[in-house]
């Protein structure tokens, strides 16, 4: 059986954590053993940690992160790294990494033992075209090229509660074009269930549409 090892990277507000968490749950629902790994050393305390309990309750096999109370140090400068994350590729089953934002955030992957030679590892960049940093084809090409080794894109254009199918379709065109310039696949367009249903199985650029639930609303930011 193929094992999925996926790391979600991207700019702030792209929806990395949301996409990663939903992917972990999707794989879990298929009966697979999934380990979620918190690699966010940019904003370490506030993303996956508040929902680790509910992820476990929903069937994710393990969430590798610290509970904030277990950390040594203050505020955003604690001892960040949970040593279990260093050796997580030695585990069996699927691995989904939630990585901190930006190029610097993505560098945390290098701290995972064996990540440089892991054949199954796919680094997937999440793109939201309503963030001005990734609003146009040339912006996206520039940003993706500045990241270390990205294998594929996920198109996750949204405006929070104001998202419409039209906004997503506009984004799909832009991300589709950028992906062809980059010679990279777009593995999915993600949208909340209601909008995913409105768009259909594929969006206007031919990307497969993946329905997601908004779980990060229960986290800090």
């Amino acid at each position: 059986m193929r094992r999925y090892v996926e790391a979600y990277v991207g700019e702030g507000t792209s929806g990395k954590s949301e996409v990663a968490v939903n992917r972990a749950l999707e794989l879990t629902t298929r009966g697979r053993r999934v380990t979620m790994v918190d690699l966010d050393i940019v904003k370490p305390c506030y993303t996956l940690r508040p929902i680790q309990g509910s992820l476990l309750a929903m069937g994710v096999a393990e969430v590798v992160t610290w509970a904030s109370r277990d950390q040594v140090g203050m505020g955003e400068t604690p001892v960040l790294w949970n040593p279990a994350a260093s050796w997580v590729l030695q585990r069996s089953g699927d691995i989904v990494f939630d990585v901190g934002y930006g190029v610097e955030g993505a560098k945390a992957l290098a701290l995972v033992e064996g990540s440089e030679v892991e054949a199954d590892l796919r680094v997937i960049m999440v793109i939201n075209t309503t963030n001005p940093l990734t609003a146009t084809v040339s912006d996206i090409v520039e940003v993706v090229s500045s990241f270390p080794a990205v294998h594929a894109l996920v198109h996750n254009t949204h405006l929070g509660d104001e998202t419409t199918a039209e906004i997503i379709q506009d984004g799909a065109r832009i991300v589709g074009e950028a992906a062809s310039v980059l010679h990279m696949p777009v593995v999915a367009t993600t949208a909340v269930a209601e909008l995913a249903a409105a768009i259909g199985e594929v969006d206007c650029a031919g990307h497969q549409v993946r329905a997601i639930r908004r779980l990060m609303t229960d986290t800090f930011w």
């Binding site: 702030g12 507000t13 963030n131 609003a135």
Partner: peptide, 13 residues
């Protein structure tokens, strides 16, 4: 332009 971002980024923009 309608955009989505963090408040700190808003200040910068």
């Amino acid at each position: 332009k309608r955009v989505f971002m963090t408040g700190n980024e808003v200040v910068c923009r």
